[in-house]
Simulated scan of single mutants.
Amino acid sequence: MAGIRFSAEWMRPWQADTLPPACHEDAAQRLAALDLPLLLLHGRQDMTFPAPLAEEAEKLIHSARAVVLDEADHMAHID
């Protein structure tokens, strides 16, 4: 964990209340248009992006596979 560095590029727009929404209305269509295999790794305990979003995206994107980790939060790749 000590080697992980996070960008604060979002901090200034967030403080100015100009940060765009995290979920785009057409996100599934945009990802499907890439026509690439997608792994949607998600934490069941994620309160920012609830797990049903990944499960729904899997249904909408033919090349996607959703894996929901029951004990993980927002940073499922670390949890």
Rank of each mutant, 00 (worst) to 15 (best):
D35K: 12
L36N: 13
P21M: 14
I4C: 06
T18W: 04
F6W: 09
Q15F: 02
R12L: 15
A51Q: 03
A32M: 11
Q45N: 02
L41V: 01
L53Y: 10
L38W: 09
Q15M: 13
V67P: 01
D46W: 11
F49A: 10
S63M: 08
L60F: 01
A66L: 13
A76Y: 03
A28D: 15
D70M: 00
E71G: 11
A27W: 14
G43T: 00
W14R: 11
A32H: 05
A72D: 00
Q29E: 15
S7T: 13
M1W: 13
L53F: 13
A64R: 05
A64G: 08
R44D: 08
F6R: 06
E55T: 12
C23I: 14
L19R: 03
D79K: 03
E55N: 02
C23H: 14
D46S: 10
L40C: 10
Q29N: 12
A27Y: 14
V67C: 01
D17I: 03
P20R: 10
G3D: 06
L34P: 05
D46L: 00
E56K: 13
E56P: 04
A2W: 05
R44H: 15
P37R: 11
D26C: 09
T18I: 09
V68D: 09
M1P: 15
G3W: 01
L36E: 10
L40Q: 07
E55Q: 07
I4E: 08
A64Q: 04
M11Y: 12
L39E: 07
C23V: 05
H74A: 03
I61P: 10
H42E: 05
M11E: 13
A28R: 08
A28Y: 04
C23D: 14
S63C: 11
A32E: 04
D26V: 06
D35W: 01
H24S: 13
S7G: 08
D17F: 07
L36T: 08
E71M: 01
D35S: 12
I78M: 02
A33G: 07
D26Q: 05
P50I: 03
Q45R: 12
